[in-house]
Design a binder for these strands. Structure first.
Lengths: 206, 206
DNA sequence: TAGATTGTTAATCGATTAACAATC
DNA sequence: TAGATTGTTAATCGATTAACAATC
């Protein structure tokens, strides 16, 4: 009936729901409820039911949600019922950690390319990847059809790299550089900056 | 007059404002406006003015905000007009990258301790730190009076480590393990999980 | 002065919660 | 059946925006 788009804040909670029920699934649990899920996540049961109801009817009165089914459904909604190739730009400490990170497995992602502009790093092995030269980045990413990239370069190069990524056809950017960057409307952007997160918390410390 | 507490969502934007004006300061800029700041951050000027007005009157009609003064004020509000010692738990790829990370400088933080439970890692050098054994973590953190920790251990150990940190007196936790954890009301908690961020964005990809 | 920009109020907009009929 | 839990509605709550007097 209603065809208005789902609020972005709701979309942002789905990955948390998915992570929690995947963990339950791993423990062999078969069914959960909005109440249990809410307790685990620190979210109200009503909100979880309302969020999920935006996408369909996944539960059963009296019993709750079948974990395997809900898992499949959320993966489907988030488009992670497949594996996305991801490019890492910058092979410093952060970029290298991302290239070796095991935590993308089973979450829908696989790092397939790592780039750096430092001639000393180009050609070096990083995890299972060979570091490639930044000059070839745009061509390689476009040719491979990669839509997702993580920026792990110094702050003063982040916008330049972002612009190149967009030119290469990337549509989702996870930015680890501690700076804001601008992207067109049709490109998604998220930031990870540990200092920012820590500063949020020091407000509450004496 | 009004003494109700500031919404957490407002507190969470202050670090972004601070990062932007520190960047302007570094460029030698002396003054900014809510309009300019909003453009850089992709936030409305009205929201920035309203947010800042929760804490005081930092601007001047007609001219805007003095960057150096606003910088000092926000640092003061966020309690980052000092340097906080931070402990890193887990010396895997992520923990090691955090231990070597240069980006905490000038943001109010300094990693002073790194812990791991792997006997092969204990005693090894990581950045400028010697990796210490986890068994001594609670005592060392308490003795040093450390209030902030970053968890970079496997998901199935995150809650255990969190409980120990709380026992040690830690009041702010930045969790890099891809799992929810529970903490008491008087402890701040933030999560960083790249898969979660990426899944948020894949919703918008075809 | 004229132009610009703040701080603040009121209006709008959106998100969360409470409650409950439906039903497994 | 009785108990439990969903999906949904309406009410509440909170956040954002628009507008403007004050004033630099």
């Amino acid at each position: 009936m209603d065809d208005t788009s789902v609020p972005d804040i709701v979309v942002g909670r789905l990955p948390l729901y998915l992570r929690a029920i995947q963990s339950m699934h791993k423990e062999g649990q078969l069914v959960t409820s909005s109440q249990e899920l809410g307790k685990v996540l620190g979210i109200s049961a009503a909100q979880i039911r309302k969020d999920l109801s935006q996408f369909g009817e996944f539960g059963k009165q009296g019993t709750g949600y079948n974990i395997e089914y809900l898992c499949e459904q959320i993966q489907n909604i988030l488009n992670v019922d497949r594996v996305w190739d991801v490019a890492v730009i910058g092979a410093g400490d952060i970029g290298s950690a991302l290239a070796r990170y095991q935590g993308f497995t089973n979450r829908g992602f696989r790092v397939t390319m790592v780039f750096d502009s430092n001639p000393l790093k180009i050609g070096q092995q990083e995890g299972s990847h060979i570091i490639q030269e930044s000059a070839k980045m745009v061509g390689s990413i476009r040719k491979a059809g990669i839509k997702i990239a993580m920026i792990a370069v110094p702050a003063d190069q982040a916008q330049i790299v972002a612009d190149q990524l967009i030119e290469a056809g990337v549509k989702a950017i996870l930015n680890y550089a501690p700076t804001s960057i601008a992207v067109p409307n049709d490109v998604s952007l998220q930031h990870i900056d540990p200092s920012t997160h820590l500063q949020h918390m020091t407000y509450y410390l004496d």
